[in-house]
Write a protein that binds this DNA or RNA. Sequence first.
DNA 1: CATGAATGAGTGTTCATTCAT
DNA 2: CATGAATGAACACTCATTCAT
Lengths: 220, 220, 220, 220
Amino acid sequence: MEKPSGTKEKIVETARSLFAEKGYKSTTTAEIARGAGFSEGTIYRHFNSKKELLMECVIPVLQKIVDSTEHYLEHYPNQEEDLRSLVIKMLEMRLQLFQENYQTFRIIFSELLFSEDMLKHYMEFIINQEEKISGMISQIEATEEIKRTRNYMLFGMGQVMAIWMYLNFMKWSKADGMEFSHEMLNISQETFLPDMADYFLYGIAGVSEEEKIKFTRGEG
Amino acid sequence: MEKPSGTKEKIVETARSLFAEKGYKSTTTAEIARGAGFSEGTIYRHFNSKKELLMECVIPVLQKIVDSTEHYLEHYPNQEEDLRSLVIKMLEMRLQLFQENYQTFRIIFSELLFSEDMLKHYMEFIINQEEKISGMISQIEATEEIKRTRNYMLFGMGQVMAIWMYLNFMKWSKADGMEFSHEMLNISQETFLPDMADYFLYGIAGVSEEEKIKFTRGEG
Amino acid sequence: MEKPSGTKEKIVETARSLFAEKGYKSTTTAEIARGAGFSEGTIYRHFNSKKELLMECVIPVLQKIVDSTEHYLEHYPNQEEDLRSLVIKMLEMRLQLFQENYQTFRIIFSELLFSEDMLKHYMEFIINQEEKISGMISQIEATEEIKRTRNYMLFGMGQVMAIWMYLNFMKWSKADGMEFSHEMLNISQETFLPDMADYFLYGIAGVSEEEKIKFTRGEG
Amino acid sequence: MEKPSGTKEKIVETARSLFAEKGYKSTTTAEIARGAGFSEGTIYRHFNSKKELLMECVIPVLQKIVDSTEHYLEHYPNQEEDLRSLVIKMLEMRLQLFQENYQTFRIIFSELLFSEDMLKHYMEFIINQEEKISGMISQIEATEEIKRTRNYMLFGMGQVMAIWMYLNFMKWSKADGMEFSHEMLNISQETFLPDMADYFLYGIAGVSEEEKIKFTRGEG
DNA sequence: CATGAATGAGTGTTCATTCAT
DNA sequence: CATGAATGAACACTCATTCAT
């Protein structure tokens, strides 16, 4: 099906890397051409415009994620797992997603605010993802473990953004000239995922299942 | 001391509005000048560069917020209030902040990834804000109501981003041509703030104070 | 090796002509583009900056002269010629140089005072030329015909500037609106070169070889 | 007659200094105003245009020189002096002129080629000066000491240019970053003026008065 | 007399896009 | 398929000049 020349792929790869690093507007087609080892004209043989090239850097990645999530979620909830392990797995998956597609998400988050196209594609992606999750959630909800679901989506997206920020702090603290580190922000890298899971499940003041049991027992 | 002509202010206002709407790179100095009702040359009498004008759109606002937060937090924790009311107030304050300075934060969040300057200024701001909050938090922590503090900052920032997203969804759903609404995203506008407070305090599965008491009592 | 399109050459030619006529600063890239029959963007495909274009108008010409002088001087001193003929030839060569590269030297002499780059390139050129001449001079010096060599270089450069001025006076006196002519300046065009040679050899009061012989003989 | 405020003078002084250093085109009225300690508007209260200010930097200086030369030449030729001393005095006067009005002459020589106005004023100046000199010369000519007068003016101007170059070499060799020095150019600072006088009188090969006498005597 | 904010035409330079080869 | 020269509209920024105060 695919042309074996790989020209288009090379261009997209280079463009994605540059868009992520410098931003869409600040990246020139000349830079992309140079980076990909082709001439500027070649870009326009494969893409009608710079904008189209931008979308081509993003959409297939989102689709790939959609597909792989499908597969991922099909297998997991079947297993006998407690809720906390499930949440950790879910957060882990999100972190991995961001890590593996860091450039793509940098592009998305920076273009989102100014490109209706980008916004639409990203919202579709989010809604697709959330539908899957909420399916899972409602199953668990039935077990009465989950106490709150109203406005859940915004809360969930906040958690996801926390993961995104975590990843960026890691990258920044490795970069030169940055004065703030994760120590400064009181971020413990080792316990990040289970901690986030606990916040997700019990907030800053909630009582965990074990504690609830303890409370109950203790009173007996 | 200052000339009351207001030229500089007019330019900053226009620039902020345009930067927020279209992005820094996509806004031309010509547009700003036209929008402000001055000639392009006038911009450069007041600012050395477009970049300087950008920072002028952002820094004073952040500073203003820093100052007002100082004042805000000084008064609240003294009052006899339960934790939940306090958290709601805090989230309310954040939402109000984003609402009142929507343009400024749009600029910040879009430039953050590509401008070291912007990142530094915003990190300073965040750290300043978090220090104040965490001061408040640690007071409460002593009352043993708060169970989790490790990696708190990232969690807190996730909450803030949830508020930011909420605000954006509200704006988008009012905008033309947007196909998704808050209903579609299962967002209940009426209960948003208390819901977020509950998530913040007890997560999706945590037991609230009242429930805890109920549990405890019920067992007796 | 080179593309025969000649675009670069056309641009350089036009730029040289305009720089010479109006000065570097007073010539706009738009004028150059228009004059060369290209768009402004084309200039910047071939040159990184206006400054680079300026240097490209000058350096190859100087190099060409350096090369051709090499060749010129290799052949002449071998011939049996008296000093006066040699000096006339040399001055002739200088005049020809200025005539053939009039625009280039106008640019050099006008930019010299304000551009360190230009100064350095021109000094290298001068020193290169003077080394060749002084080699010739020292050969002749051995014949005891030459009486003075200290500070020779400044004197020689003064002579060269006299030739440069002569050329300019010729151009000016042909131009419209100029009130002074070469008659007014007591310049005889017909005898200019031999006269300059005599000044160079014997100054305003020196006795020429023939006269010296005459004096010597006459006393006998 | 003159306003005692000195504003105009301060502006002219500053402008002359800047025009000389950076060139007319590269100097902005804003710089001049700042340097003079006035506002830009003030410049235009005293001068109709930047061009007028330029001419004001030059013309009075030339006039002052014309006047002082008048006085200078009135007194000298009367004295009993040999031709060589007279020539040295003349060259000395030229060097002093250039030194004392270095900035002015830098401006003249750099604007000459592109400004008809400047050229006219400078030519008038030169012709005025040359008339005085040639008056002096023709007196001496009668004594039969001077052998060559045809095309004298160009030769004389060449000498003047040699002096101008000498002065510039001195300045450049003191400046930072200049790789060439007067040693490199074989310039002996100590004997410069008498050497130039000898070149002026006897060229590189001419016999000087003493030598002529020696020749004559020697034969006896 | 002095100011300095404002101007607007223009400055060198950039860049997405086109097209003949 | 690929090229890269050419475009031209736009870009951030400059500057001599004006004028209300």
